[in-house]
Simulated scan of single mutants.
Amino acid sequence: MALSPIAQDNRVDTSAPVSQPSRTYDLFTTAMRSTVDGDDALRQFVRKALLTARSTYLIYDNQYGNEIETLIGQNVNNALFDVEIVRMVREALIYDDRVTSVDNFVITRSADACFVTFDVTSIGGSTITEEVAV
């Protein structure tokens, strides 16, 4: 192998991309001594991304988290609120490379609370259903 900057290396990497494990610490237990993987790790990501405000914490980049807090308390009608909640949840979750789609939104209201139920489809083909209170 020559050390000259003029010499070119024409080898091309044709290997398939290696899927990284999604194993992570279980953040929602009291001791944080266990780990989760697969659908449980994806479910944890969904919960964490929807609990984290976007562009607030320096440890995360500007695409992690959600902007739902900007919509709460605004004087908007229910139709606009529903459309914006769907958009904000989808934008918060599609950021992860394990998520292929976020669909089947059902928005229900009870007194002053709003509950959003939706399906998250992973790259493995599995679908998890989540419900969050907004």
Rank of each mutant, 00 (worst) to 15 (best):
V12S: 10
N77F: 04
A79N: 11
F81I: 10
A31H: 08
F28L: 14
F105Y: 12
L42M: 00
V102Q: 08
L3A: 10
F105E: 11
V120H: 04
G38Q: 00
N66H: 14
A111I: 00
T100N: 11
R54K: 10
R98Y: 03
Y95D: 05
M88D: 13
I68L: 15
V116Q: 14
D61H: 03
A92T: 04
D26Y: 03
A113Y: 03
T52A: 05
R98N: 06
T121R: 13
Q20G: 08
S19W: 04
N62M: 05
D97R: 01
E69W: 13
N104S: 13
S126W: 03
D26H: 08
Y25R: 02
I123D: 10
E84Q: 13
D39W: 03
F81K: 09
S122Q: 01
M88Y: 15
S22E: 09
N62H: 07
N75P: 10
A41K: 00
N78D: 13
R47H: 12
N10K: 01
S34T: 05
P17C: 02
D97V: 11
Q8G: 07
R47A: 13
A16D: 14
I59G: 14
N10P: 06
A16S: 10
E131R: 14
F45G: 02
S126D: 15
V86S: 14
R43E: 01
S55D: 09
E69K: 09
L58F: 11
D61C: 11
I123R: 01
R47T: 10
S110L: 12
V132I: 15
A111P: 00
L27C: 08
I107D: 12
D26E: 06
Y60I: 06
R109Q: 15
N75T: 07
S4W: 01
R11H: 04
D82M: 07
G73D: 07
A113S: 12
A16P: 05
R109N: 13
Q63W: 01
R47M: 12
A41W: 00
L58R: 06
D26I: 00
T127D: 07
D103Q: 14
Q74G: 15
Y64D: 04
F28P: 06
V89A: 12
N62T: 06
T70K: 09
D103S: 12
V76Q: 06
I123N: 05
V106K: 13
V102K: 08
L71G: 15
T24V: 10
L80G: 05
A2S: 09
K48A: 12
E130L: 08
A133Y: 03
M32D: 14
T70C: 06
M1Q: 04
D13T: 00
R54V: 05
R33I: 07
V36H: 02
D96P: 04
A41V: 01
T117W: 13
V116F: 08
N104G: 13
E91G: 09
A49P: 02
M32N: 14
N10D: 03
A53P: 05
Y25A: 07
V76L: 15
I59T: 11
T35V: 01
R90S: 15
P17D: 02
T117Q: 10
N78W: 01
V134M: 13
V132S: 10
T14H: 11
T35P: 08
Q63A: 08
Y95K: 07
T108N: 14
F115M: 10
F81A: 14
R109G: 14
R90G: 13
T108Y: 09
G65C: 11
R54G: 03
R98L: 01
V120G: 09
D119Q: 10
S19F: 05
Q8W: 09
I85P: 11
D26K: 04
